[in-house]
Structures are given as C-alpha cells and as structure tokens.
Simulated assay, not measured.
Amino acid sequence: MIKTVKWLRGAAMVAVLALAGAVFAEEDNGFSEHQTKRAVDTFTYGAEQCATLDPIYRVDCLRQAYSQTVRVVANASVYWEAEVALTRVNRGLYAFVREHLDKNVGRVRVNGGRIKAVTADSVPVAQALYGDGVDRAVAAMRGASSLEVRYFEPIAQVLLASKALMQ
C-alpha cells in the first residue's frame, strides 16, 4: 500500500512537472521587450545621427544604422524575420552607395564609422530606393505571426519614421 501511494505521488509529480514545463515553454518564446527596445534604440540613435548630415551622406549613414540594428536582432534567433527584412534594406543601400559613390568628396566620421558620400544627382533615386526598401521591410514585419508582430511593430514604426530623413 505504501509503495502504491509513493508511486502515485511520484507519477503525480511527474505529471505536474510535465504540465509546468509546457506552460513555461509557451511563455518563453524567445521574444523580449528588452531585445526589441535595444533594436529600436540602436536604429533611432543611428538615424538621429544621420539627420545632422547633408543628404549626400545620409544613404551610407542609414546603411550603417541598419547594419548596427541587424547585429542587435541577430542575437535572438526568433527575430530572424526582422533580421532578414533589415538586411535586405542594408544590402540595397550598400549596393547603391557603391554604385553612386562620389569619389571627389571626403568621408565623415559618424557614430563610430566613416560615412561615404553619394553623388548629388543620385539622391532622388536614393530617396525612392529607400522608401521602397522601408515599405517592404515594414510589410514583412507586419505580415508575420501575431506574436512576432507584437515585437516587430516598434521596429517597423522607427523605420517608417526614418523615411522622412530621405525626403
């Protein structure tokens, strides 16, 4: 009888722990307000630095802000959709800067990096490219699951706000 009671208590404990593990696993989904805030703060700081520059430097400056933000979200694998969206914008800006680099203008140091200038004639094209890239990134982040959207929305908001920098 005592063995049976002990066995039943042990079985009950195993069942409770199994249920508790499932509940804790549901709550620990890898997303965090802190991680999202770090990404938002990193991008916001970079964009604020870019706002002080001439338009010919803003393309590369924003590329650097995206690159730094990608490094932040890459630390949490559940942010991979946001990472991919941000990386696409970053790569588009990188290719644009390489293609439209103004070699006659020197670099400036901003936010720990040396920012390159694009030709003044290419700035309107950069504005359109940047607007399209941001729209696609925001659409990707808002098209994710409802849980992901909850954490990606603040990032999407700062991206949309940065479109004004290129106008």
Rank of each mutant, 00 (worst) to 15 (best):
P124G: 03
A156M: 06
A140L: 07
H100M: 07
N29W: 04
A20E: 08
D54T: 13
R136C: 01
A65F: 01
R71V: 09
G131V: 06
R91P: 04
V78L: 07
L86M: 05
Q35Y: 07
A95P: 00
A140Y: 00
V5P: 09
V118Q: 02
V125G: 07
V105L: 15
G30M: 11
F96R: 07
H34D: 14
S162I: 08
Y79S: 02
A164Q: 15
G92A: 10
L17M: 10
A164W: 12
L8E: 01
C50Q: 01
Q64F: 13
D28P: 00
A15I: 10
W7L: 15
C50E: 04
L8C: 08
R58K: 10
W7Y: 14
A39V: 14
G133Q: 05
L101S: 10
L159W: 06
V149P: 07
R88L: 14
S32M: 03
L93M: 07
A25M: 09
V23F: 12
Y151C: 04
Q157R: 14
S32H: 04
S77K: 13
K163I: 13
T42V: 08
F31V: 04
P55M: 04
N104W: 11
V70N: 01
V59S: 14
F96W: 04
R114Q: 10
V73Q: 10
V73D: 07
D121Q: 08
S67Q: 11
V59E: 10
R88G: 15
E99D: 07
A15Y: 06
V108F: 12
A95E: 04
Q49I: 11
T44A: 14
T44Q: 13
R136M: 08
E99Q: 13
F96G: 05
A85E: 07
G113S: 15
G112H: 10
Y79D: 03
L53K: 11
L19W: 09
E83C: 06
E26Q: 03
F31C: 01
R150L: 03
C61S: 13
A117F: 03
S32V: 00
F96K: 05
R109M: 13
V72N: 01
V70F: 03
V59N: 06
G46F: 02
K6D: 13
D135E: 05
L160E: 15
Y130T: 06
E148P: 02
G112E: 06
Y57L: 09
V14I: 14
T87W: 00
Q157P: 10
L101C: 06
A20F: 08
E26R: 07
T87H: 00
L159Y: 03
M141F: 01
Y66V: 02
R107L: 13
L165M: 11
Y79F: 11
N111D: 15
A117S: 09
I56A: 06
D54H: 12
F43V: 02
A144F: 00
M166H: 02
T52E: 11
V123R: 00
A82C: 07
C61K: 03
